[in-house]
C-alpha cells in the first residue's frame, strides 16, 4: 500500500491547493501529470476521491488518524515536558505551548509553520548548519521521529499574535514595507514577498511565513545570515540578501513584518 507516513506529510500541501505536487510523485516521478496513462489517471482519481472522503470524515481515516494523533500527542508531550533525554527541555519554555513564541527574548513564533519546514530547521540545527546556540543543546537528543512529532504538533496548533516588547518606528516600518513589497533591486534584492509569499504568509513547504513574526527574532536571523554561522539557507539565497542589506534596512524589514498579523491564528 501507500506509505501512510508520506501521505500525511503531503496532505497539508494538497489542501493548500496543489494536488500535482502530491500524487505524481507517489507513482512515477519521471512522468508529467498531464501525460499519465489512463490506468494511472484512474488510479490518481481514486486517490483524490479517497482523500476527499477522508476529509469529510472529519479527520483522517482511522489508521491514518491514529498515526497522526499519535504523532501529535507525542509532539505535544515533548513540547510540554521534553523527551526525557539529557539537554532536552520543553519547547514550551520558549515557544509556548501554542507556539506563539516569546517576543521578549526573540524566540520565534512557530505555530502553523509547515511540518517540513520545522522538521528541516531542527535537523539543520542538529547538523550545525543553522546557527542556534540555544537550540543546538535542546535538540541534540531528539530522534527523527521526535522531530517529526514536534513538527506535526506545532504545525497544527494555533496561537494569537503575542505582543512585541518594543514600539515600532513608523518611519522604519514604511521603509520596511517598501523593501518587502518592491525590493531593493539596486542591490539586487528582490521583494521579500516574492519568496515568502504574498503578505509574507509563506510558500509551503519550505519558505516560512514571516508576517507577524517577532522583531527580535527576525533581526537576529538576518544578522546570523549576514555575519554569523547560519548556513542552512538553500543556495545561500538569504545569506546574500542579508549581507547586502544595511543595518538600518535589516531593522526596517524586521519591524515591518513584525507589525503584520500572522497567518494561522485562532484556537486549537
Amino acid at each position: 500500500m501507500i506509505n501512510i507516513h508520506q501521505v500525511i506529510k503531503r496532505v497539508p500541501e494538497f489542501f493548500q491547493g496543489n494536488a500535482r505536487t502530491i500524487f505524481p510523485i507517489s507513482f512515477n516521478a519521471k512522468v508529467h501529470p498531464d501525460i499519465f496513462s489512463t490506468q494511472e489517471r484512474s488510479m490518481r482519481k481514486k486517490l483524490v476521491w479517497f482523500s476527499v472522503f477522508l476529509f469529510f470524515l472529519g479527520d483522517f481515516s482511522p489508521a491514518v488518524s491514529a498515526h497522526a494523533e499519535d504523532l501529535f500527542s507525542r509532539g505535544r508531550q515533548i513540547a510540554k515536558a521534553g523527551n526525557g533525554m539529557p539537554g532536552n527541555t520543553a519547547c514550551m519554555e520558549c515557544h509556548r505551548l501554542k507556539g506563539g513564541g516569546m517576543p521578549s527574548i526573540g524566540a520565534p513564533r512557530i505555530s502553523g509553520q509547515t511540518i517540513q519546514y520545522i522538521e528541516r530547521e531542527i535537523t539543520e540545527v542538529q547538523k550545525g548548519a543553522r546557527y542556534g546556540p540555544v537550540m543546538a543543546g535542546v535538540v541534540q537528543n531528539l530522534s527523527p521521529r521526535d522531530i517529526l512529532a514536534v513538527a506535526t504538533y506545532y504545525s497544527k496548533v494555533r496561537s494569537p499574535k503575542l505582543r512585541d516588547t518594543e514600539t515600532l518606528s513608523p518611519k522604519r516600518v514604511r521603509l520596511g514595507k517598501q523593501i518587502a513589497h518592491q525590493g531593493l533591486w539596486k542591490k539586487n534584492i528582490p521583494a521579500c514577498v516574492v519568496c515568502h509569499g504574498p503578505n509574507g504568509y509563506g510558500v509551503p513547504p519550505l519558505f516560512p511565513y514571516i508576517a507577524g513574526q517577532n522583531r527580535t527574532y527576525l533581526m537576529r536571523q538576518l544578522i546570523a545570515y549576514a555575519f554569523l554561522e547560519r548556513k542552512d539557507d538553500p543556495q545561500g539565497l538569504m545569506r546574500g540578501i542579508a549581507r547586502r542589506l544595511s543595518p538600518q534596512e535589516r531593522k526596517s524589514v524586521a519591524e515591518y513584518f513584525s507589525s503584520l498579523d500572522p497567518p494561522y491564528t485562532g484556537s486549537r
Binding site: 493548500q16 491547493g17 500535482r20 508529467h32 516574492v194 509569499g197 504568509y201 510558500v203 509551503p204 543556495q235
Partner: peptide, 27 residues
Amino acid sequence: RCALCHGLHGQGRMSRGETAFPPVWGG
C-alpha cells in the same frame, strides 16, 4: 538550483491559493 521554488515538476508553488512561484511548464 531551480526546483526549490519552481517545483520538481515545474509546477511552481502556491501560497494560500495565490501563485507564489510561477509554473515553468505544464498546463
